[in-house]
Nucleic acid binder design. Sequence first.
DNA 1: CGTATCGCTACGTTTATTGTAGCACAGGAG
DNA 2: CTCCTGTGCTACAATAAACGTAGCGATACG
Lengths: 111, 111
Amino acid sequence: MSKPAAMATKRAVRGSKSGRPIMALLDLLGRRWTLRIVWELREGSLNSRALRTACDEASPTVLQARLSELREAGLIELVQGDGYRLTGLGQELKETFLPLHRFAERWSRRS
Amino acid sequence: MSKPAAMATKRAVRGSKSGRPIMALLDLLGRRWTLRIVWELREGSLNSRALRTACDEASPTVLQARLSELREAGLIELVQGDGYRLTGLGQELKETFLPLHRFAERWSRRS
DNA sequence: CGTATCGCTACGTTTATTGTAGCACAGGAG
DNA sequence: CTCCTGTGCTACAATAAACGTAGCGATACG
């Protein structure tokens, strides 16, 4: 019980010295597996095990860390018996990312 | 020529085992400073020093690494006498991110 | 030449991530 | 009740990534 999982209480995200929300957001999303987690939850909820499988068996240590951060950020939530899922805010973020899918296709065909 | 330049040409990005472009893209963007660099270049070109200043004095080591990766990915380019700037593809990516700015404002007002 | 700026790199220290193992807790049989 | 099974989550040593400081070679200008 060394870490109550919510000890940070919205601690300033790394690199967000400017105080601008966009910087804090870019910093949060610029951590390993964060974007991936949001992406994998785009179609519905996944429990922690399924999420781990979806994320190429990422180590549970960092995965739990990211899940805690995303929960603190109010982007995902843990629902009993249903696993993790995007919150309303998370859904909005997801919508922002959907065009990324199409872009990735064009990008993969770069010369 | 310390950089072999042989590794160029679209080397597999970390975590892109699936081969899906979106995974490679999410992985590329999920590295420290990558999103930030694209963001800082959204309004025009910046040389390496100015970019470093814009990115909260991030260490040049990782900054150069990200710039190399982004150049390999064809998202940015280095123009003599003008510094780094987004390529056409990079501009497309930027367009995808613009809604993120507005979202960040809503997100920062979360309860 | 001396100076200045550019893109970029070396290298030792600090921080983040990985991989393996396992915990506490909650249900559902038997 | 006890024995399973699955869940969210954590410990901990090893590895990889990022940091911070310093400085390189090349170029340009006086």
